[in-house]
Nucleic acid binder design. Structure first.
Lengths: 209, 209
DNA sequence: CGCGTGATTGAAACCCTTCAAGTTTAGTGG
DNA sequence: CCACTAAACTTGAAGGGTTTCAATCACGCG
């Protein structure tokens, strides 16, 4: 008789996306990356949980290994304004809060059950020192970030609700399926009702999806 | 008899503001700064002249030694959207156009007769290598810039015309006296007529200045 | 099943824009 | 220095896009 005993192995946390990210953005060997990965803090964040609240000092950048995060502000009248979404492979944080060690005015929340890498300033500094390619990739990302913010300002200055929506679905088609419409409305700076009507109009003009 | 001949001396271009800027942001000696200053390109720009046009690749950051510059986009319908003003001691440029060597979508124009320093990437690199304080100051400025862009997005997402105007005059009281109101309206994302009415309402509520 | 969240729809109100006209201001040349 | 012109600013009336509020519907989940 054969007795089969299967010991459930201690599952290593899967960090495929973050590993890929590091190997693409840096010129470190896989061995070194694997070593680094053992040091990073990873957490499972349930839908609805917060990674940062307004008033707190932001201490980490967050890399979405799995799931979906959002950053938003809340104004005096209690209305939310969504600043950014962060699906898989995106970084999200309050750069200036980290940099100036100042209270953030952002909330960062998981809107799906997520696995999130906590990236400290020290970690960034360490990898930057190890790889000049990584440093450059970060510079690049910073410039892109600024450019993207300016484009958004530009659109908010001039575009109608419909134009904003069309830009959004063209830029982030994947998010459309994962993010409730009222959050998209918040990102676009319009009410959920308005977005609903915009979509209705577009459907009438036989606009696909 | 005494004949007095006054030879008009070759006037050195006055760069007090930029000199002060360099000495505050770096830890270079005055002698070194003076040497550096001889290398920079300075130009007098008449009101209405352009330093950058959409479609061109931006090659310089511009430091306003004297005068006032603005950056703006023009949308499909021909409307201008002002992205930024740059009075004395401000830097203005299209970072991403410089960085990615890509055509800019910005115009940069003098709205007063101005004296402008052309700052090349090489110049920035050189000073950065000479002074780590300068490097850090630039990092800091970059972070502040991002923060300021985010605050503006936030306001465009939620605030009324009046709120935007009040924020503007509180943040840039000096510009109010130098910039035509229709440009301020453009910066705020409203029409000149609306701004006029907002100001009228504020005056009625006996709001000073 | 019932509850809560998200989405839709309608009607009224509101803010802002548009268009058009008039007024003020500033700059230019005689 | 005044006259002229263009640009900037104001004001009014009408219209449009969005919001607000309220009600209803659809769906997933305990």
């Amino acid at each position: 008789m054969i007795i089969l005993i299967i010991l459930k192995p201690k599952l290593p946390v899967v960090l495929d996306n973050f590993k890929l990210y590091l190997s693409e953005k840096s010129d470190l060997t896989e061995a070194v990356i694997d070593k680094i990965l053992k040091e990073v803090r990873v957490e499972s964040i349930q839908k609805g949980e917060f990674l940062l609240s307004a008033g707190d000092v932001c201490k980490h950048a967050f890399f979405t290994e799995k799931g979906l995060l959002r950053a938003f502000t809340v104004d005096e009248s209690g209305k939310e304004h969504i600043i950014q979404f962060a699906p898989e492979n995106w970084l999200i944080s309050d750069r200036s809060s980290i940099y100036f060690n100042a209270p953030s005015d952002l909330f960062i929340e998981a809107i799906e059950n997520s696995r999130v890498i906590f990236i400290s300033t020290e970690f960034m500094g360490m990898v930057s020192e190890m790889s000049s390619k990584f440093r450059k990739a970060n510079d690049r990302a910073l410039q892109s970030h600024i450019h993207q913010l300016q484009q958004r300002i530009n659109q908010l200055l001039g575009a109608t609700a419909e134009e904003r929506y069309l830009t959004f679905i063209q830029k982030y088609p994947d998010l459309l399926l994962r993010v409730p419409l009222w959050m998209i409305a918040s990102y676009l700076g319009i009410t959920p009702e308005s977005l609903s009507r915009v979509r209705k109009d577009l459907a009438k003009k036989n606009f696909k999806s």
